[in-house]
Design a binder for these strands. Structure first.
Lengths: 153, 153
DNA sequence: GCATAATAGTTACATTTGAAACTAATTCAG
DNA sequence: CTGAATTAGTTTCAAATGTAACTATTATGC
């Protein structure tokens, strides 16, 4: 074998494995809230961010959920049209506007959260408590490291 | 507290964490091959599948890389236009066509594989060998379980 | 102060993606 | 056999997405 550069075994290749795992989890969860609540994945994430940290500006939301400002803007537009999110222009800096869930938005959020946590719990059932902690710690480290690598180039 | 349904802490929520981890890893890798080779993520995955398992039909490819047939069809069309993939209609069943990398495709594949494996190795450096095995085993179990949950409904 | 640059957010356009309809070939039921 | 049902793969049309341009407002340099 002249050039024994290892073969790429797709099924064992970390980026690929992470991608399909994240995909099936995200789609499974979406199956649970898409139909009853009519939310896209991005809309739900914006609601989740506001449910936890409101009030936030659109930029804050984007930072929290790692989503660019255009995507946030569109998700918020859709949520406002349905009366789920309220916006208040900042008096001091009128470029900014703080966002928060409306009463309706909070009510919907409160109904989705147990569904989301229930799914997560169901998923975690395949791991022991210790494995679960271990997995969380490992993903955390991988994430931090991946960010570092990316910036370093 | 009347309804103590735990709060959803987005930053600790498994589906969310997996999603952003997979995203940054996939994008980082894409940064490495997009510019020099002009491939999309889906095109690269098709090449990787063919590089490892050819010949495959389009359906086979879709199964391997968890991608629907429309996406495979489009990726293959692009790769064929660039002379990276060859198609041969099956004599026995003329609906099918087996796909494989062309000589050019193999050459490009051979140049990308070390880059991809190098990135993976770099990413894994933040884990010990044992942590790495552990992480692989845990993702494998989570993936199998997520598939099971999804089908069960 | 006033022109310039920077920031928050939206809009417009082009590309990508996904769902459904479609074509072509094969299988199956009677 | 013959017509309905299946399967492989492509095309079509609508929706989602990303990039870049744009508006409005605030900060900065001189």
């Amino acid at each position: 074998m002249p050039c024994p550069s290892q073969a790429l075994e797709l099924e064992n290749f970390l980026p690929y494995r992470l991608s399909i795992l994240a995909q099936i989890v995200s789609e499974s969860l979406h199956d649970l809230y898409a139909d009853p609540f009519g939310l896209t994945v991005t809309q739900w994430r914006v609601m989740a961010a506001l449910g936890r940290f409101a009030p936030l500006t659109a930029s804050d939301v984007g930072q929290r959920i790692v989503m660019d400002k255009v995507a946030v803007s569109r998700a918020v537009a859709g949520l406002r049209k349905r009366g789920l999110v309220e916006r208040a222009t900042d008096r001091a800096d009128r470029r900014r506007a703080s966002l928060r869930l409306s009463a309706r938005g909070r009510a919907m959020h409160a109904r989705i959260v147990p569904i989301a946590l229930g799914y997560e719990e169901r998923l975690y059932k395949v791991l022991t408590a210790e494995e679960r902690r271990s997995f969380d710690a490992l993903t955390e480290r991988l994430f931090a490291h991946a960010k570092g690598i990316r910036q370093a180039g």
